[in-house]
Design a protein around this nucleic acid. Structure first.
Lengths: 195, 195
DNA sequence: GCCATAAACGACCGGTCGTGCTTTTTTGTC
DNA sequence: GACAAAAAAGCACGACCGGTCGTTTATGGC
């Protein structure tokens, strides 16, 4: 009982690593089995299809994201500090450990933006959850009389853009000042209506 | 003479379409040949490797980008109008024709951010060119006494973020208000130091 | 119209892919 | 230690991959 679950976890863990580098579609059952010293069929038996594995990987990533980004955010005081904690933790998540490892969701977003199916649906759901959380948290900001809902969505839109630009600059373009740029932009975003 | 060049162009055109959907690595010589009613080997003869085809696709995309985004921008008056034209044209480019078609560079950026090689190098060069153009154009903005170079880079960083967030919202998440959000954020970005 | 050459073709290579099937090994329980 | 169940392995399949041949067809300059 415990044995099967353990290897299943190990497979998902390795698959997540592979997905960050090559995308969810780029996961290879053969390569996965070799890395884990398992036979391809023995590994395959745990998931009855590649798609099931992809969904499991997505769920695992979402769980880690909630633990490492969302929960620390919600533990911070409402308003700007909470949003700032979410931002900092998100940058950490994107940067990965120890060097720029990347974000599965960013990779998958490009992969599945016009590839319908259950994987895309799950991905969209995760992204919606994240963006709605951001919009909700943002409504606690001083907003200079603007409509709270529209204001929250607007802040969430720009917040997400900063993270994406941070990834592009830090990873592909290897810019050292990526984090500095992101944090400066964030502070300006937070203080826009307050000042 | 002219015949070979014509089919070569047709191949690159179709490959570009395929690359937008599936990535540069996802281009399939077989599928390409089938769509163009060519034999795989006949098609392959035009490029001596898949990598050469990928580079050709990247170059073609860069040329179109310059024509459809950069040139109209440089034809606009310096300062905010020029940056705004670049922004609007870039959003058009990302949205594609007629519906959300996507941006090769965004897809490739995720694909190659940790996959070294000539394709990545070319991609990085294109991205650097684009970001440096943005930074240069941005220095014409009223900047409230800040150092021009750092200011330009900062604006470029945030500018790029807005485009990326626009793509994510408009394509994957299918949000109708993506453009509205992007344009509102842009105006705020432009007027930050001016107001 | 000749003829070199460019362009396209069809068959095929070794390899990898996801996915079945059957068999063997391991595991946990009584 | 026997035994059922779970886990892993072995093997094979059809499809597709990028790439390489030798051959045939079409083209363009003279």
């Amino acid at each position: 009982m415990g044995k099967g679950a353990a290897t299943r976890e190990a497979v998902i863990d390795e698959a997540l690593r592979q997905a960050v580098a090559l995308g969810l579609e780029g996961i290879s059952l053969g390569g996965l089995a070799e890395n884990l010293k398992l036979s391809k069929s023995g590994l395959f038996a745990h998931f009855r299809s590649k798609e099931a594995l992809q969904l499991a990987v997505l769920d695992e990533a979402a769980a880690r994201f909630r633990q490492r980004v969302v929960e620390p955010g919600l533990a911070s005081p409402r308003g700007a500090p909470r949003l700032r904690t979410l931002f900092e933790r998100w940058l950490d998540w994107i940067a990965g450990e120890p060097c720029m490892g990347g974000c599965v969701f960013a990779v998958a977003s490009q992969e599945y933006d016009d590839r319908p199916g259950p994987v895309r649906d799950r991905l969209v759901a995760v992204q919606n959850e994240w963006h709605e959380l951001l919009a909700r948290v943002a409504t606690d900001l001083p907003k200079d009389g603007k409509a709270p809902v529209a204001f929250g969505r607007q802040v969430a839109f720009e917040f997400v853009g900063l993270g994406l630009s941070f990834q592009l600059h830090g990873k592909l373009m290897n810019r050292r000042d990526a984090r500095e740029r992101a944090e400066e932009a964030f502070e300006r975003l937070v203080q826009e209506a307050a000042g």
